[in-house]
Computed example of a mutant assay.
Amino acid sequence: MQVTHPDYQSCNASNPIATHTTGNDSITITNHGHHFFLCGVPGHCQSGQKVDINVLRAAMVPTPSVSPTPTPDATVPATPPSGAATLDAMAGLFCKLGFSMAVFAAFALVLA
């Protein structure tokens, strides 16, 4: 469940902003700032199944007037490195009730 900051702090799942229940949910965050999620199963949040995702504002990088020719060392791989966590791979590892710390950890890696 996505919740407000006060509900996150108190583990209050009674008034969620959004609810995700399939256990295979994808969450797209489109704005910067803190986004608070917790497990709505009684007792889970109190046991630590909650996460605060802080999306930082993208830094403005000046564009050079002349683009340098890329070198092999400057290219970005088209696929993530082997062993990189993905949402789909991590989603099914834990709680089948819609909350998974693995999903949020993978999501944070995707945003990084």
Rank of each mutant, 00 (worst) to 15 (best):
P64A: 01
P42G: 07
T63R: 12
L109W: 02
R57M: 04
S26C: 06
G48L: 06
Q46H: 02
F104M: 12
M1S: 13
V110P: 00
T22N: 11
C95S: 04
V55Q: 04
L56K: 06
V41M: 03
A18R: 11
V76S: 09
P80H: 14
V51N: 01
G43Q: 08
G92I: 11
A13M: 08
S67E: 07
F94L: 13
V41N: 08
N15I: 00
H35L: 12
F107S: 12
A102L: 06
P81M: 11
D25F: 07
F104S: 06
Y8K: 00
T71K: 03
C39Q: 00
I17Q: 10
P6C: 03
F37E: 06
D7G: 06
L93I: 15
Q2A: 15
R57Y: 04
D73L: 14
C39P: 05
S67I: 03
S65G: 02
P62C: 00
G43I: 10
A105E: 02
C95A: 11
V3T: 14
Y8H: 12
S100E: 01
N12Y: 03
V66I: 03
Q49A: 13
T75S: 02
A112W: 08
F104Q: 01
D25N: 03
L111G: 06
H20C: 08
L93E: 07
T22C: 09
V55M: 00
Q2F: 07
L87M: 11
M90G: 03
G33C: 14
T19L: 15
S10K: 14
L111A: 15
P6T: 15
R57F: 03
F104I: 06
F37C: 08
Y8D: 10
T75K: 02
G43D: 02
L87D: 03
G43R: 10
A13R: 07
Q49E: 02
S100P: 05
S47P: 00
R57Q: 04
C39G: 01
Q9V: 10
T28H: 11
S26K: 10
L111H: 08
S10L: 11
